[in-house]
């Protein structure tokens, strides 16, 4: 059975998100996507759902953030972790090898 809530919060289908946009964002977050169409519809649905935020009336609201005094922070002292060999992939002399930059 479908809870009533889901229907009351039904989302506007503006469909403004384009396939190209989604493709360019997936490049931005560096994920190879075999078939963009697989994601386009779902991502579009999700983003359309987020458009609900427009009606929340929070334009003038301010962000509230917790804060701490400087004295709560870590004091400056050296401590050696003792290396990460065995946990980090190392190539030669301890360097990490990476693909060449274009």
């Amino acid at each position: 059975m479908q809870p009533r809530l889901i229907t009351t919060l039904a989302i506007p289908q503006s469909g403004l998100v384009t396939e190209e946009e989604i493709e360019s964002v997936s490049k931005l977050v560096r994920i190879k996507v075999a078939d963009h169409r697989e994601h386009v519809e779902k991502v579009r649905d999700m983003i359309n759902f987020f458009d609900m935020l427009d009606s929340a009336g929070v334009e003038d609201d301010e962000l509230v953030m917790d804060d701490v005094p400087v004295s709560r922070l870590r004091e400056d002292a050296h401590e050696s972790f003792g290396g990460l060999s065995g946990y980090v992939r190392q190539y030669r002399d301890g360097y990490v090898r990476v693909p060449k930059m274009d």
């Binding site: 997936s26 977050v29 560096r30 994920i31 190879k32 075999a34 693909p99």
Partner: peptide
């Protein structure tokens, strides 16, 4: 990096695309 990250499952992939977008 894009190739390696192709290993993420579809839900994670979707949410990262979503996150990049928003």
């Amino acid at each position: 990096v894009a190739e390696a990250r192709g290993r993420f499952g579809p839900e994670v992939t979707r949410r990262m695309i979503l996150g990049g977008y928003v």
